[in-house]
Simulated assay, not measured.
Amino acid sequence: MVRKVTRYPVEGPNALWQIYKTVSPWKGVKNFICIQAARYCPILPLKNWIYRHLLGMKVGEHTAFGLMVMVDVFFPEKISIGNNSIIGYNTTILAHEYLIHEYRLGEVKIGDHVLIGANTTILPGVTIGDGAVVAAGAVVHKDVAAGAFVGGNPLREMKRSEDTDVSEAFQAQTSQMVGK
């Protein structure tokens, strides 16, 4: 499955050397300062406020970012995360890639009730469906289906044991919310 990214060819030096033709250096500095504040902030509502109001991310209610999460510095507005999801410690969420002869931009969409394990890297242009679980240390380079349990590098579907089966809990919780 190919990630949904838009490719922009460049001529001359590699694309990273040309970054300020695509994004303002002042935006980069402002975003870097805001992201560093959020990375160390222990107050979840304040962290989400920074992401929503200073970085332009779409962050759902009760979503929790672990300590040291690194969101895309140059294009955080291309990241959306649903309600009641957890982004684990030291996870990196990228919406851009700067390569030798091109750069790529892609939206990252993370659904509701998603659990992202610690030290995960999420690449641009992927969608992670509602209720999915991504194991710690994974590299998410393709879409993840709703309710799936994935991990590894390369990313693959993992077998669930009874203590890791969150899809039934997600479905029960969703049924309760709909019934209210």
Rank of each mutant, 00 (worst) to 15 (best):
V2R: 14
R3F: 11
V5A: 07
V5Q: 05
T6C: 00
P9G: 08
A15Y: 04
L16H: 12
Q18T: 07
Y20A: 02
T22A: 14
P25D: 06
W26M: 12
W26L: 14
W26T: 11
G28F: 09
G28A: 13
N31F: 09
I35F: 02
I35S: 04
I35C: 04
A37S: 10
A38P: 03
Y40S: 10
Y40H: 13
C41A: 08
I43H: 12
P45H: 08
N48W: 03
W49H: 06
R52Y: 10
H53A: 08
L54Y: 09
M57T: 06
G60I: 01
A64W: 12
F65Y: 03
G66E: 02
L67Q: 13
V71I: 15
V73W: 04
V73P: 00
P76G: 03
I81Y: 03
I87A: 06
Y89W: 13
N90V: 00
T91A: 11
T92S: 14
T92R: 11
A95S: 15
E97A: 12
H101P: 00
E102A: 10
L105G: 01
L105Y: 10
G111Q: 05
D112N: 15
H113V: 00
H113M: 12
G117W: 03
G117N: 02
A118K: 00
T120W: 06
I122H: 05
L123V: 07
P124A: 06
G125T: 10
I128A: 08
G129W: 08
V134E: 05
A136C: 04
A136G: 07
A136F: 02
G137Q: 07
G137I: 04
V140I: 15
H141T: 15
H141D: 15
K142S: 10
D143P: 05
D143L: 06
A145G: 03
G147E: 08
G151R: 03
G152S: 05
N153S: 13
L155C: 06
S161I: 13
E162R: 11
E162G: 01
T164E: 14
D165S: 04
D165K: 10
Q176H: 11
M177G: 00
G179Y: 08
G179D: 14
K180P: 00
